[in-house]
């Protein structure tokens, strides 16, 4: 959460709730909704670390709000974040452990079948999401398509497991 918030603030100063709204608008409903509490906590930590600077703005009819902007250190952090490749998803998942630790082939095949059904259900959810999500929200559509391609790869891998174990 730290770096995405810094990257948003690189576009201009904002307060906590504005950051939440911009994230939602940018990423769409497919992405887990950012938690406002977590945003405030993270902003506090970033300020302590000298990455951002807050200024209180008094409002007559509402509680005061704190507007944040990047410090030079924060700007450097965003720049180096964008220059780094991200870690790839790993196969260190629970299903793999279950498969490896299941007592016998019969159990393993049952696990594979169960997992396939689970993935198909997820695929169906994603298809529905893609259909209901704003078509013009490019990032959201790309995220959903990425999730679908990952799932397809997981399904192909299940097939490989089944061929190898049967």
């Amino acid at each position: 959460m730290r770096l995405p918030l810094l990257a948003l603030l690189a576009k201009g100063p904002a307060h906590g709730y504005e950051l939440k709204q911009s994230l939602e608008k940018l990423l769409g409903t497919a992405y887990p909704e950012p938690n406002i509490g977590q945003i405030y906590v993270t902003l506090g930590r970033l300020e302590k670390a000298g990455m951002i600077e807050g200024t209180d703005v008094t409002q007559s009819t509402r509680p005061n709000k704190r507007i944040y902007q990047l410090t030079p250190a924060g700007r450097d952090a965003v720049a180096s974040w964008l220059k780094e490749p991200a870690e790839e998803p790993r196969l260190r998942d629970e299903f793999f452990l279950k498969l490896a630790l299941a007592p016998d082939t019969e159990e393993r095949i049952a696990l594979i079948n169960m997992q396939r059904r689970h993935y198909l259900n997820t695929m169906r959810d994603l298809s529905k999401l893609a259909a209901t999500e704003d078509r013009d929200n490019r990032f959201s559509q790309l995220l959903i398509e990425g999730a679908m391609l990952h799932l397809q790869a997981d399904l192909d891998w299940l097939e490989r497991c089944q061929e190898d174990l049967e």
Partner: peptide, 26 residues
Amino acid sequence: HDARLASAADRVIHLFDGRIVDEATF
């Protein structure tokens, strides 16, 4: 082969080695 297509169906049967080995109903 495509799970996106399969997930649009009401029911998916999985064939392995000439037999139906599993079935999922949405």
